[in-house]
Design a protein around this nucleic acid. Structure first.
Length: 426
DNA sequence: TCTGGGGTCCTAGGACCC
DNA sequence: TCTGGGGTCCTAGGACCC
């Protein structure tokens, strides 16, 4: 049997941990640049604040009900996430925990007898809550997709299930599927949900589970769809995955704090994003051969499509590299190629692909000894930036003015990861 | 005035090879 | 006159996830 454990309203819970006076009060967390709402407390949900909706549209409602608002504080959330995951690893063993996202993990529970799963899951939940202060919910079932179904219901009917739901037999499973709308099935997004309802009159997960694998294959994205159907029928088809996945693509993209029209600011922004992407690359001991850059113009008519035109291009390097200096040069050259005078830009991004392990870089005859020095320099920069403050050391191309920097008007302290911002008890 | 930032997997189709 | 068939690699794009 498998389980999914999920932190309740994770970002809101992190903020509340250090601001207990916010318990039972409505709270929302904003995306980068304070653009959208990405986490809501139950109280905020009840007030009708929409998930993923733009902040400025929700503002009247938020002010009317005195909802507390925070900018995303990824230093804090990342650290608390690590504590939750580490608790699970201590309890279950490393190889039975698959971290799925910042606030979710799949657990392999095959080591426990089936008739004790309710008890075990409850114990896991209570331990995580006691050790970290973060509330969680757990769904247990034969497959990942069914565990997701259980997890959702355990939260929806918290009074009945108290945050733990086990689907141990066909009867329980079917009842749970029946209570799950088709839109709420993991793997069914907006497009598929609409198609299933309009063309096939399928409205809940039980109806979908009765369809054949072939149906999934034909209408829900090929092998992805047939796997989904199998999982719904209780046949495990999505395995637990290894922890040590190296990313095949690394991206750093940001909206600007306000629209930008000068090329110098965009060069600086792209150089900064490249530095960040290269850090991620080095952290997983990889090197990249392809670098892509894109810029997004400010939309003409944001009522129709607020996203505006995207213009991108890429270069393939002769050899893969993880050195910031070698990546910044082509990245900035791409900016010069894409930039058009007189256009107002609101976003830019850098993507690294063609990723290989950095010990397998195919050198050429001209590769010199200076490479070693450079590697040491990169390690040193990473160490200083990690242990001190972000960006103590940076490349000149990244600039110092930063008038493109994103807005974070409601940020709280990095209470658990910075000495000078440590939470104080008086 | 103001709408996030990452990722994944899969498929189709074109280029190219023998 | 008649011009195959099988394979690989790459890219773009669509769908999904949190």
């Amino acid at each position: 049997m498998k389980a999914i454990i999920d932190c309740n309203n994770f970002y809101c819970s992190c903020e509340r941990l250090f601001k207990p006076y916010l318990n039972n009060k409505p709270v929302v967390i904003l995306s980068n640049n304070d653009g959208c709402i990405v986490s809501r407390s139950n109280e905020a949900k009840q007030l009708g604040v929409q998930m993923a909706g733009p902040y400025f549209l929700a503002k009247p409602l938020i002010e009317k009900h005195d909802v507390s608002v925070f900018s995303s504080n990824y230093n804090l959330y990342g650290d608390l996430s690590w504590r939750v995951m580490e608790t699970l690893r201590v309890m279950l063993g490393k190889k039975n925990v698959e971290v799925y996202s910042v606030d979710e993990a799949f657990l392999d529970l095959h080591i426990f007898p089936e008739n004790e799963l309710q008890k075990i899951a409850t114990e896991i939940k209570e331990t995580v809550e006691l050790w970290t202060g973060i509330k969680v919910s757990i769904g247990v079932a034969p497959t990942k997709v069914l565990a997701k179904v259980a997890n959702r219901l355990s939260k929806k009917y918290v009074a009945k299930y108290n945050g733990v739901m086990v689907l141990g037999n066909e009867e329980e499973t079917n009842a749970a599927l029946k209570q799950t709308q088709i839109d709420d099935v993991w793997g069914i997004g907006r497009q598929y949900a609409q198609k299933l309802k309009e063309h096939f009159c399928i409205y809940d997960a039980l109806q979908l589970s009765k369809m054949t694998e072939e149906f999934g294959k034909t209408y829900l994205g090929g092998v992805v769809g047939s796997r989904l159907l199998r999982e719904l029928k209780g046949i495990p088809s999505k395995d637990m995955e290894d922890e040590l996945v190296t990313k095949k693509m690394i991206a750093t993209t940001r909206m600007f704090g306000s629209p930008v029209e000068d090329i110098e600011s965009i060069r600086e922004a792209v150089a900064t994003y490249t530095s960040r992407a290269a850090e991620k690359l080095r952290r997983q001991h990889s090197a990249a051969r392809v670098i892509s850059v894109f810029v997004v113009a400010k939309g003409e008519d944001h009522n129709v499509d607020f996203r505006g035109a995207t213009l991108g291009d890429s270069v393939t390097l002769l050899t893969a590299t993880s050195f910031t200096s070698e990546l910044i040069k082509p990245a900035v050259a791409l900016v010069d190629k894409l930039f058009k005078t007189g256009t107002s830009y609101k976003k830019a991004g850098v993507m690294l692909s063609g990723i290989v392990p950095d010990n397998s870089i195919q050198g050429n005859l001209f590769l010199s000894e200076t490479k070693n020095c450079e590697r040491k320099l990169m390690d040193m920069i990473d160490n200083v930036n990690f242990s001190q403050r972000n960006d103590v050391l940076k490349f000149a191309a990244a600039g110092t003015t930063r008038n493109w920097k994103m807005q974070q008007n409601f940020i709280s302290g990095r209470y658990t990861t910075r000495w000078d911002e440590l939470f104080e008890v008086s």
